[in-house]
Design a protein around this nucleic acid. Structure first.
Lengths: 158, 158
DNA sequence: CCGATTTATATTCCACCGCATTTAGTGTAC
DNA sequence: GTACACTAAATGCGGTGGAATATAAATCGG
């Protein structure tokens, strides 16, 4: 008996690989469905949903939330603005920054896309995991996410 | 009492978001460490490790494994070949395809990088999750991954 | 064996991201 | 009040991925 505990140690590199592989495939699959039904990709849906749920966010707030660079976020906001789903409003308390807001079109789009999103994720994940494992895994990912966010892990420099 | 079960239903969209956010930040963090210590990024480490563990793989095999496009995979192999870590050998049984193999330099690199990778993942994940949740979550992700791979979910067209 | 179809890879074009730089605005020390 | 450091966002460049296309090779039906 090598280990004191009766439980096998977890293969953390394997955990990382499984996490990345699941993310890639789920993201691709959701992406395809959102594109064909609504003409947006998942990152755009997530931007719109965040703005709906956090009105008055700035570009930097989005960048932090999604752990992507400021430049990429700014350009992503440009594209949403060009489509008429988002507007930049001047920030009354700081003229360097803008506050982002959904247009009516954007609000309608995100609500419609959310139905597709929710349905597809439920098919993909709910169909594969059931029983006790899913709630435990979900809580573990929530905990891990909070820890990474609290410690500012994995933020790009930009 | 609306639900028959005593357990709350899992928020699957939230599961998806947590999964994507964890993946992004872990990937970024591991990326930074591998780049500063070995001059490669995580995707390159994963290519090299796969080739070490699956000698004689073709470009298409890598593309399927990582659920990325053939074009991206071919270009990634070009970059590894240009650095002298990988060679394309003619496939004796099918002249359309090449078999990819690590060079000695590539083999040394992947072994060194693997230490860094393992150590960093252990810090990031092992430090945040413990107890019963981690093994259950790890198994759930393994199951989900196998299901997605079995059903060919989320493969790009290219 | 021959032509049509499929398969494996490479190539090309376009969109996007990260990084570095730039521009503009803020606030703080003196 | 002015210099200086800091912050927010935009912009340009290089690298990279995805999708479509091209090319070459293998396979299959006759």
């Amino acid at each position: 008996m090598e280990y004191k505990s009766g439980r096998d140690p977890v293969d953390l590199p394997g955990f990382f690989s499984d996490l990345v592989r699941c993310e890639t495939r789920l993201y691709n699959a959701v992406n395809d469905r959102l594109r064909e039904r609504h003409g947006i990709v998942t990152s755009q849906f997530e931007f719109l949903r965040y703005l709906r749920d956090h009105p008055g966010s700035r570009v930097a707030d989005l960048a932090t939330e999604f752990a992507i660079g400021i430049g990429a976020t700014s350009k992503g906001a440009d594209r949403l603005e060009k489509q008429g789903w988002v507007v930049r409003q001047p920030n009354p308390s700081d003229r360097r920054s803008s506050l982002l807001a959904l247009t009516d079109d954007g609000a309608r789009l995100v609500d419609a896309a959310e139905e597709t999103f929710t349905e597809r994720v439920a098919e993909l994940v709910g169909g594969a995991l059931d029983g006790e494992a899913l709630p435990v895994a979900a809580q573990a990912l929530t905990d891990l996410r909070l820890r990474l966010e609290r410690d500012r892990i994995g933020l790009p420099t930009g």
